[in-house]
Amino acid sequence: MSAGLMCQQTVLDGMEILPLPHVPVKKQPHRLELPEDETPAHHVLRLYPEVNHCVMCGECVRMCPMDLDVMGYVGMIKRGDLKSAARESFTCIQCQLCVIRCPASISQPNAALAARRWLGAHQEPRAEHLTRMVEKVDSGRFTAIFRWMRRMDPMEFQALYLRREREPDESPPGTWLPEDRTLL
């Protein structure tokens, strides 16, 4: 028997499809601010202390439909290596299959998400281009354009979307710019 997501499985003769049971997920409410005496790594462990109870059974790894080293990124969180944990868990789709099989009741996807959030908020350098864009949005530069789009007929909006300029698939990251730069 194996588990997977229906959206990622090819239907095979004799396959049985069963719904997953509801999994109440431990998700801690949080803010990105940290107490003065706490590092991001300690904060993640304080929110998700159950990661310290991992028994290294590997069930989470066997269940992951994304082939992630779930047990590995849990270990990285335990060691305080949020950067490696964030990189290893980046493609997690939050399906919670690892949580279903975990004998220690660890909420691996949510602990990893917290690690990515605090790493980005407190340890990674700010992306200057995003900072500039947020400033433009906050200044009200796009308010009139957003109002205009909200008033559009849905079919007209869809046609506008379909006519948009698209970045070529083969362009190197960060090099392409659209001809119409009014929104940049």
Rank of each mutant, 00 (worst) to 15 (best):
E59K: 09
V44L: 05
V11E: 06
I77T: 02
S107V: 03
P29E: 07
T10C: 04
T39W: 04
H129P: 10
L68K: 04
A85Y: 05
K83Q: 15
L97A: 08
H53P: 00
L32Y: 00
P35W: 03
S107T: 13
A41E: 05
V137M: 15
P49R: 05
R79P: 01
R117Y: 13
C60M: 13
V70K: 07
T91F: 10
C92K: 02
E88D: 14
V137R: 11
W118T: 06
P21Y: 02
S84P: 11
R101L: 09
M133I: 11
Q96L: 14
L113D: 09
Q28F: 02
H43W: 05
M15Y: 07
G140K: 09
V61I: 12
L47I: 03
G14F: 01
L82F: 10
C95G: 06
D138C: 08
H30C: 06
E59F: 09
G75N: 14
Q123K: 06
K78W: 11
A104H: 07
K26M: 02
Q123W: 03
E50F: 04
K26A: 06
W118D: 03
M56G: 08
K83V: 12
V99S: 09
G120W: 07
A85V: 06
G120Q: 09
M76K: 10
L45T: 01
R116Y: 08
E16T: 10
L45F: 04
E36D: 02
K78G: 11
T10D: 07
L12Q: 05
C64F: 05
H53G: 01
Q123T: 08
P24G: 10
P35I: 03
L45N: 06
I100F: 15
E135A: 12
M63D: 07
S84T: 15
N110I: 07
N110L: 12
L32H: 00
Q108D: 04
V137K: 09
C64I: 04
E36G: 03
L130R: 14
Q28L: 00
E124K: 12
C102Q: 05
M76L: 15
C64A: 07
E16Q: 08
A85Q: 01
V74S: 01
R117F: 13
M63V: 05
W118Y: 15
H42S: 00
P40K: 05
V70D: 05
G120N: 11
L18F: 00
P103V: 02
A85S: 07
M76C: 11
N52H: 08
L130N: 13
V61S: 13
L20S: 10
M15R: 10
E50A: 12
D37A: 05
A127P: 06
V137Q: 13
P49Y: 04
T131N: 11
E33I: 01
E38G: 00
I100Q: 15
G14I: 03
P19Q: 06
I106K: 02
D37C: 00
S89P: 01
I77M: 06
P109L: 06
R31N: 01
E124A: 15
P103I: 02
Q28R: 00
V11D: 04
P29Y: 03
K83W: 09
A114C: 09
G14V: 01
A85P: 05
Q123S: 12
V23W: 02
Q9A: 12
A111C: 08
L32V: 00
D138T: 08
H53R: 04
E59D: 01
L45R: 08
R46W: 01
Q9L: 12
E124H: 11
Q94A: 13
R79D: 10
S84R: 15
N110W: 14
L97T: 08
T91N: 07
C57Q: 07
